[in-house]
Design a protein around this nucleic acid. Structure first.
Lengths: 234, 234
DNA sequence: CGAATCGTTGATGAGCTTCAAAACTCGTGG
DNA sequence: CCACGAGTTTTGAAGCTCATCAACGATTCG
């Protein structure tokens, strides 16, 4: 990771939410980095040193078991990651974080982060709301992973990606994601996701332009993310 | 749910963490309830009205999809639930909550809860730490659900239950849980959990006394919760 | 232009769910 | 005290979803 001096304050969750009088302290404590595409920013199991904020780019937050991997979420502009470290008993990062594209980062060490929370009550409140959202998302994802078949999970994943990253001029989901990563985010294998995508294309729920994905039949795809279709449509 | 007047303050996460000068406001706003075994306290999809704290007993927090159910966690003495409501866009509870035994509860409505967070900074900080823990647990559980086979997930579930509820004089995990609920917590079907438990009993990793479960071989069972044993032990 | 990575496809079988049906509990009422 | 039925536990069998393995085509890149 390359250290830089640029200060992209308006895209930083941290710098945006602290009190004006606290900002000088932040500027004195924060470090700025650039991570290249594919670069590992945090390695699961390493000692916690601090917290990262994305000011530009996208980072995948993932966790592995043996040789398998699950992508928990994507952190993009304005997002925080590595923050789970604030209260781990073992003092180790529970997740890995890898840049999906060239990413600029704002970093502060964990003690300063904790102090900031204690001093900046609005920041604490906003962080609390952010956590509440994340928990909400986590709970849904747990349910999905446990109860949904792959096809439905894939539909959820695609909607999630579109909501988070929007669509480009071609109507395609605005993120470059390898099928490998899409599979890891869906919680299935590469091959299964591939085959399942073909089904969705066959049914004209989604379309491909090169490697980019567009949602063609919003309604039907969305239906997959809802209740189990279980018995009625045999 | 039966309304009562008892005030079990020392077992309440909420009452324990607010400022002394705020306590009168809490006592004026909080309501106390008793929920009977099996009683539904929160129904997924209902409008959010407030937040619950368990002062005695155990509550399962669960979420369903079609006719399947996943238990996300168990809230026991000192725990909070229904709190995800503070920031949902739709204003609906994302989870259900059901009493597993007779449970006493402390309840405050959502607006008062939010005000409390803004006024009681220590409470906000403690809640933040609690959220961080929950997120940590959620992330692990997501990984488990996505990547582990049932046998390993069951091992995780059993350790989790023992850690949370301890063991009784018979060395058994100190919670009465139907196999149905154990299955829903593991994220597998009733029959699969049953069969898998038999395997674990066969291998003498766990034992049964009536319906209570004891961990016999700590080390081997724990090994299942760690890395994939994948290729090396064929 | 070879080497490597990624995408595509088929075949196979393990793991798990589903269905179905005993065997066992346990509370209720005759 | 026993019979009954509802709920839970136990077991068997069938089949489906998905992971795994393997192989080949496509694309990138030094």
């Amino acid at each position: 990771m390359k250290k830089i001096n640029s200060c992209d304050i308006e895209n930083c969750f941290f710098c945006q939410n602290v009190l004006p009088e606290w900002l000088p302290a932040v500027l004195a404590n924060r470090k700025n980095f650039i991570a290249k595409k594919g670069e590992l920013i945090i390695k699961e199991g390493d000692p916690v040193t601090g917290v990262f904020f994305v000011t530009q780019g996208v980072v995948k937050v993932h966790k592995k078991w043996g040789d398998k991997e699950l992508i928990l979420r994507f952190a993009d502009q304005g997002s925080i990651f590595g923050h789970r470290g604030i209260n781990t008993k073992d003092g180790l990062y529970p997740i890995s974080a890898t840049a999906l594209e060239t990413t600029t980062l704002c970093y502060v060490d964990i003690d300063f982060f904790k102090t900031t929370i204690k001093v900046n009550h609005d920041f604490a409140y906003n962080l609390l709301m952010f956590y509440a959202d994340e928990l909400h998302t986590s709970e849904k994802k747990m349910r999905d992973l446990a109860l949904m078949p792959v096809k439905n999970r894939l539909a959820v994943a695609l909607f999630h990606l579109r909501t988070q990253f929007g669509i480009n001029t071609e109507d395609c989901i605005n993120i470059t994601l390898s099928r490998q990563d899409l599979a890891a985010f869906t919680g299935a294998t590469y091959e299964t996701v591939f085959r399942t995508m073909n089904e969705l294309i066959q049914d004209e729920l989604i379309g491909l332009k090169g490697k980019e994905i567009s949602i063609l039949n919003e309604e039907k795809l969305f239906a997959l993310t809802q209740e189990a279709s279980s018995h009625q449509n045999l």
